[in-house]
Design a protein around this nucleic acid. Structure first.
Length: 615
DNA sequence: GTAATCACG
DNA sequence: ACGTACGTGATTACT
C-alpha cells in the first residue's frame, strides 16, 4: 500500500493507494465500515473535461471520509475496477462536489449507471450554492471545492487543480496534456486526488449546518438534486448535429467574413473587431460618433453601426441616407466571423464520434437559480435567423417540439406581487399588453400604445426606469413618462411589493428569500433588482416544477434542453401531437392564483424548422 | 485580466 | 431624497 499523509485543519489525514489484492481487500472492508457510519465522499480523476470525445479515459476513482481517502487506480483494470465498482454498488450514500460531472464520467467510462448513482448522491456544490449562489467576483465565496475548503475547513487548503497544473509544467506537460499524461503513480497526483475527497467529506457537515442556520428547506435541496439528475440525463443523450450542413455553412460564413473584411480594409480597417480602428476610420470618413462606452471610448456597436449603414434592426434598408460602406462591411464581417467561430466551429469541435453534441447543462448557474448551457451555449443561438439552429437535429425518425410558457415573467410578477387587475386579466384570458394599453389609453389604443405598454412591462420586470425604457422602446420621452405614471396607477401593487421586498431583504442581511426558499443576495447599491431576482428565480422554479411533471409523465427521455421559459424536445414524428399536448399539460400550473400555461410548437427534423427553415 | 461586443431569455 | 433595466456564455482586442 502506498500511503501519504497531509495536514487538514488540525488533523493528519491519510491518503492510501492500493497496489495489491490485499490492499484492495482492505479498501473494501474500510468502505463497508465507512458506509455504516455515513456517506462516502467520491471523486474521479480523468484525462480532461470533454467526457464524450474519443480517447477519453477514467484514470482513478477516489473514496473517502474526513480522515482517510482511497485512490483506486481504475486505469490498471481488473481487480482495481472490481473493487471500485463493488463500493459504488455497495455504499448507500455518496458525497460528490459537482456530481453531474462524476455521474457522467462513471456512467460513460465505468459502466456505472447515472440512474443508480444519482439517487444515492448528495452534491456539496448544490448545497453550497443554495447557501450563497454568488460567484467570487460578485462578492461570494464561490462554489468551487478550493474556495469552499479554504473558507469552511482550512485557510491553507490546497488548490489541488492549480498546484497540479504547476506539476504538469515541471514535467514538460501542459494544463491540457497533463491530466492524461501524468504517471499514475505520481505522488502529488495521488495525494491531491485523495485530498479533494477528504475536503468534500469535511465540507458537508458545515454545509448542512449552513442550510439549517439559514432555514433552507430540505425539500429545496432534494428538488435541486432531481433537477441536476434530469439535466445530466439530457446531457448524456445529447443532440444530433447535422455535420455536413454546418461544414458548408461554416465555409459560407468564412467567405462572407473575408469578402467584407476586404471592403473594410479599403478604409484602413485591418481588423473589424477593433473598435478603435473602426471608430477612427468612420471619423475620417466624416461620420459623427457621439455615444461612449463605459470606459469612455467611442461606441461602435451594432446599434451605432446599423443606422450609419442605413439599416433597421432587421438589417433592412431604411432609405434615410446613403449607407456608409465601412459601417455596412464591418457589421457583416463581424457577424459572419463571430457566427462561424462561436457556433459553427464550436459545434464541430464539441461533437462526439456518434455525431452528437453533449452541451454542459449547469442547473444552478445564475444568482437567481437560472440554468445555463455551455460548450456550446445552446441557450443563445441566434433566433432572428434559422441558419445556426438548422444544424441541430431531432433524433432519427423524430421531430423537434418546443413548448414555451406564455408571458411567464409577467404572470409570475402578477402572482408574486398580487397585482389585482393583472391577475383578473390573466384569469379572463386577455392578452396582458392589450389589457394594459386599454387601461392606460382607453379602448381606442393603438398598436404603438400596446408596444409601449409591453416595453414598460418588461422594464418593470427588470427594475428599469424612465431612461432605459425610453431607450429600449424608442418612444418620445414625454410619452414614456406619462405612460409610466399611468402604469403605476393601474398596477400600484408592483411598487409597493418592491419596497416591501427591499425592506425584508435588508432585515435579512441583504438576502431576499424566494417563494421556494431560495436565497437571493442583493447588491447593496441596486436593491431595486429584488423584483427581477424574485421574478426570475420563481420563473426558474416554475420551469423546474414543469420538468418534474415531465419526468412523472414519462417525458424525460425525449427532453433536449431547458431554455428559461421553454423546453426543447425530440419526439417520434408520428406521435408529435400527443407529445405536444403532454408538454403543455406538464407546463400548466397555478402560481398564487395565477394560471401559468404554455404553447407547444411542432417542427420538423431540425431545430431551425421552428424558426423558418424548411427541414 | 479587463473592456467591449453580441448572442439568448 | 431620488432613481437605478435583470440574468447568462463566448470571442476579440488590448494592456
Amino acid at each position: 500500500m502506498q500511503t501519504y499523509r497531509h495536514r487538514v485543519a488540525d488533523d493528519i489525514v491519510e491518503i492510501r493507494i492500493p497496489q495489491t489484492d490485499q490492499d484492495l481487500r482492505e479498501f473494501m472492508s474500510w468502505a463497508q465500515r465507512a458506509s455504516l457510519r455515513g456517506p462516502i465522499a467520491l471523486d474521479t480523476e480523468t484525462t480532461g473535461l470533454d467526457i464524450f470525445t474519443d480517447g477519453y479515459r477514467l484514470r482513478t476513482v477516489q473514496f473517502g471520509d474526513r480522515d482517510t481517502a482511497w485512490v483506486i487506480h481504475w486505469e490498471r483494470g481488473g481487480r482495481f475496477r472490481e473493487a471500485a465498482l463493488f463500493v459504488l454498488r455497495m455504499a448507500r450514500r455518496f458525497l460528490i462536489h459537482n456530481a453531474s460531472f462524476d455521474w457522467l464520467v462513471l456512467d460513460r467510462h465505468a459502466g456505472f449507471p447515472l440512474e443508480e448513482l444519482a439517487p444515492k448522491t448528495t452534491d456539496t456544490k448544490i448545497k453550497s450554492t443554495l447557501i450563497d449562489p454568488r460567484q467570487p467576483q460578485e462578492g461570494g465565496i464561490g462554489n468551487g471545492l478550493k474556495p469552499l475548503s479554504a473558507w469552511y475547513i482550512d485557510p491553507t487548503a490546497v488548490d489541488t487543480q492549480a498546484d497540479l497544473t504547476a506539476v504538469f509544467r515541471s514535467l514538460g506537460m501542459t494544463k491540457e496534456t497533463g491530466w492524461a499524461g501524468i504517471d499514475l503513480q505520481h505522488p502529488t497526483y495521488n495525494l491531491y486526488a485523495g485530498l479533494d475527497c477528504i475536503y468534500t467529506a469535511r465540507l458537508d457537515p458545515f454545509l448542512t449546518e449552513g442550510l439549517s442556520h439559514f432555514g433552507v428547506r430540505e425539500a429545496l435541496v432534494q428538488y435541486e438534486h432531481e433537477i441536476a439528475r434530469m439535466c445530466a440525463i439530457m446531457q448524456r443523450a445529447g443532440i444530433v448535429l447535422d455535420a455536413e450542413y454546418i461544414e458548408v455553412l461554416r465555409e459560407r460564413l468564412r467567405e462572407e467574413e473575408a469578402k467584407y473584411a476586404f471592403v473594410a480594409a479599403r478604409y484602413g480597417v485591418e481588423s473589424v473587431n477593433s473598435g478603435k480602428q473602426v471608430s477612427e476610420a468612420l471619423l475620417a470618413m466624416g461620420e459623427e460618433l457621439t455615444e461612449l462606452t463605459d470606459g469612455g471610448a467611442l461606441k461602435v456597436d451594432k446599434a451605432v453601426l446599423l443606422p450609419l449603414a442605413d439599416l433597421d434592426r432587421d438589417w433592412q434598408r431604411i432609405g434615410a441616407r446613403t449607407p456608409n460602406p465601412l459601417a455596412d462591411a464591418a457589421l457583416r464581417a463581424k457577424r459572419a466571423g463571430s457566427w462561424a467561430t462561436t457556433y459553427a466551429d464550436t459545434f464541430l469541435d464539441t461533437v462526439d464520434s456518434n455525431g452528437r453534441i453533449h452541451a454542459g447543462i449547469h442547473t444552478l448557474a445564475a444568482r437567481t437559480g437560472r440554468m445555463s448551457i455551455t460548450k456550446p451555449a445552446l441557450q443563445t443561438l441566434p433566433s432572428s435567423d434559422w441558419m445556426i439552429r438548422r444544424a441541430m437535429l431531432a433524433d432519427e425518425g423524430h421531430v423537434m417540439v418546443s413548448t414555451d410558457f406564455t408571458a411567464v415573467e409577467m404572470r409570475v410578477l402578477a402572482g408574486l406581487a398580487d397585482v389585482k387587475r393583472m391577475k383578473q386579466a390573466i384569469a379572463n384570458g386577455d392578452d396582458l399588453h392589450d389589457f394594459t394599453a386599454g387601461l392606460v389609453y382607453g379602448e381606442g389604443f393603438t398598436k404603438r400604445h400596446r408596444k409601449l405598454c409591453k416595453g414598460i412591462g418588461f422594464g418593470k420586470v427588470y427594475g428599469g426606469g424612465l431612461t432605459t425604457i425610453q431607450r429600449q422602446t424608442g418612444a418620445p420621452v414625454d410619452e414614456v413618462r406619462s405612460a409610466l405614471g399611468a402604469y403605476d396607477r393601474v398596477y400600484p401593487e408592483i411598487k409597493r411589493a418592491s419596497v416591501r421586498w427591499q425592506r425584508e431583504a435588508r432585515a435579512n442581511g441583504m438576502v431576499a428569500i424566494s417563494a421556494t426558499g431560495r436565497r437571493l443576495p442583493l447588491d447593496r447599491d441596486r436593491t431595486y433588482a429584488v423584483i427581477n431576482y424574485r421574478v426570475q428565480s420563481t420563473a426558474r422554479d416554475v420551469l423546474g416544477q414543469a420538468m418534474m411533471n415531465m419526468e412523472a409523465a414519462g417525458l424525460l427521455d425525449v427532453l433536449k434542453l431547458p431554455i428559461h421559459d421553454e423546453v426543447l424536445a425530440s419526439v417520434p414524428a408520428r406521435e408529435a401531437a400527443d407529445y405536444a399536448r403532454e408538454f403543455e399539460r406538464c407546463m400548466t400550473m397555478d402560481l398564487f392564483g395565477v394560471r401559468i400555461d404554455a404553447a407547444a410548437e411542432i417542427g420538423g427534423r431540425s431545430w431551425g424548422s421552428l424558426y423558418g427553415a424548411d427541414y
